[in-house]
Write a protein that binds this DNA or RNA. Sequence first.
RNA 1: GGGCGAUUAGCUCAGUUGGUUAGAGCGUCUCGCUUACACCGAGAAGGUCGAAGGUUCGAGUCCUUCAUCGCCCACCA
Length: 887
Amino acid sequence: MQEMPKAYDPQSVEAPLYRMWMDKGYFRAKPDPDKTPFSIIMPPPNVTGELHLGHALTATVEDLLIRWHRMLGDPTLWLPGVDHAGIATQNVVEREIAKEGISRHDLGREKFLERVWQWVQKVRSRIVIQHMRLGVSCDWEREVFTMDEGPQLAVRTTFKRLFDEGLIYRGERITNWCPRCTTAISDLEVDHVETQGSLWYVKYPLLDDEGNPSADYIHVATTRPETIVADTAVAVNPNDDRWKHAIGKTALLPIIERHIPVIADEEVQPEFGTGAVKVTPGHDPTDFDIGQRHNLPIIVAMDAEAKMNEHAGPYNGIDRFETRKLIVADLEKLGLLEKREDHVSSIGHCSRCDTIVEPIVSKQWFVKMDPLAKPAIEVVRDGRIEIMPQRFERVYMHWMENIRDWCISRQLWWGHRIPVWYCNSGDMFACVEEPTECPKCKSKAIEQDPDVLDTWFSSALWPHSTLGWPNQTEDLRYWYPTSVLETGYDILFFWVARMIMMGLYNTGEVPFRHVYLHGLIRDDKGQKMTKSRGNVVDPLDLIEKFGTDAVRFTLATGGTPGNDFRLFDEKLEQGRNFANKIWNAARFFVQSAGEGRVQLPHDSHTAESRGDWPLEDRWIVSRTLSTAREVNRLLGEFQVNEAGRLLYDFFWSEYADWYVEMAKVRLRDGDNSPLPILAHVLQTSLRLLHPIMPFVTEAIWQHLRDHVDGLEEALIVAAYPTGEGANDPEAEENAALVMDVVRAIRNIRAERGVDAGRFVEAFVVSNGASATLEGARPVLESLARVRPLHFVADVSEAPSANVASAVLPEAQIVMPLAGLIDLAAERDKLSKQLADAEAQVSRLEGKLGNDDFRSKAPANVIAREEENLASTRSRAEALRTRLSELG
RNA sequence: GGGCGAUUAGCUCAGUUGGUUAGAGCGUCUCGCUUACACCGAGAAGGUCGAAGGUUCGAGUCCUUCAUCGCCCACCA
């Protein structure tokens, strides 16, 4: 039997308990064909570095759900994993080797990838340790990495299927190009920032019929003058009278002096700028489309790092923004710059490195999304997948319905290599296994595409690839579709939407039933936590400082699903204090139990079986039942925060503040009858709390087993209370009255300045509730520190001079407090209360006198209001009597 | 240009089928005897639930408009 220290010490408790859970194999998934499984595939953290608070939140919520279901007896699988995070990891490792003064090109592809793998090994183990510190009860034996063989096979199989069905294609398209990462990125990887910039008005000379520059100009407006060198046309709206005369003519491109046509295209908005637009199909998405329609040549005037190339004439080799300055100056010199205006526009930045993205035409691989999106829309519409909070379903729909093709090729080294080979005959083909020859011409001169896939491609397959797909494994059959996906709303499109599409495409089934989206965790000022701001908080630091349970409790209850929330020390202190409260409430029990063993009450399920128990016992047992029921309901609705709050309130404000104090009254008299009830409520609370606060509850559980019979060997596998059994409304009502009386007396004592320790005389006037109150005499005397305590049936039996009083709906308190009475204050207080009561009475009279209310409101509401009116009336009456006695 | 969210006590936030006199934590003010806990206990003060309309017997909760802040989506040069 071990002593419990005075304060809960997370540091000394957490690691041994986690080891115990692991050693006993409690985390291991055990399928049972007769039961409905509950499964979660953990969102794999990136191997870019440490876990952040978003991961901690995901881990908390998922662990909570898993522990809850495990205790309910459901077969549970929680499968952990790690993501190779292509571009992000490559960037991190590039920065690492830059410290040694080398670039990836110095190393070469193979050596560089070796360095990445070294990095991965290091970071993976840290992520695992961090997760363990958070108390996650996932099945570690099943941990998967996105670059493992299984996911590799799934990636290549999926690619080949899509390729063979024509849903993957390769084409020269305009894509977002990051000149720093030197790769194409998808639309989603571009962050748009409203930026104050300039709009330059430039005059292009029009050529006359002989092909010589005329005095006539066409005026264009541009925000990116450096792209002038790649213009292949000028476009105007066909209905624009100002420019009708120019359509079909030829303009002379300044500086480059190329002849370009003036064309008409509906896309051009006459209201903007001059109504004439320079067309640069190689460097602008809209212009690319116009170019396609008019068969314009495409000129790309920049290299991979966005330096101007040979197409840029005098600017060859110069950076794009430097070129912008130079060309503006040159145009001015030529007299072709008409004016400059301030102009705000939205500039795309690489979400990985914040470099300004350049739209550039290049050869890339794309997935045709429309056919994949349709079924994905369907499953959310018909409820096969539920997204919470529900408002995100609209966001999802909007994106799906306007979906654009997905650029999946990346000019990177780290990632899944595109499984396409080119034959020197000009053929290309996709393969699952590495081929040795071209399937068509049998040539051995084949070469694999050098590019890798967008990291989200493998992520999209995660729920089924981790379970063995494309093999039809037992795991896949049993655990798929998974139950819940928990992640941040910021990756709804990146990940959730794509998992739904690819899951349906590959398996014909949804990947998960429920999507639970959490908000962003912000700092105390509401700012996003970013490395550049330096306000990123490491979950481990918080765990060291407050304990894991405190962090989990705070994350789980501190906010609402889908909404951002601020995290700061005061919030975590609340969690820490709660853990300590639980610890000490248990400590009180353990001390009270002493050497003896306590039996749990063997029949507490029906109100009758508890009929002759003391009021406070009946009350707390009844309240425990409702709490258990409510917690299960809330968890079932994923209202994790409300479940946590409810448990907090129940445990602290009802069990600890009231029941334990009431139990002390009997215990002090040497009556040990509260012990079974204390044990019962305590162990039930521990079960209920365990999913949210696994460590403190398990630690206490192990202590409790020394004192209480019939407890399972470990709380993590103990049964979860569901609250079956009958409540005892009568006991709840009577206990409420007792507590009200105690509170009223305490209030008088405090207001009149009665010494805290002093016992004083009190009269409780009550008719209907006298038996209840008489039964609670020891509790009242002790908790309110009143003695002698008189129960009388009528106010006339209580003294009226020099008294302080309080009027409750079912009782009045009269306390003779010679020397402490301030008549004016007393009158004031009672008058105010009377005014409140009278206002209440007239409000209720009005309400109940309203025929509409009587005929339309439900009966129980009417009955309640009637009761309310009656008791408020008698309360007002009592107050008037008291006041008149005061004179 | 569309869409979404937030606006509730000094601060940070709950409040999910509309139904008693709107809650919590922190902070503030009093007081602290106790078989757990000062990471505590008792008592108190503090809110016209962003504004204006509307629906309803009844609105913090539903509808409309507006304001402020924040976010997402969008190829207007």
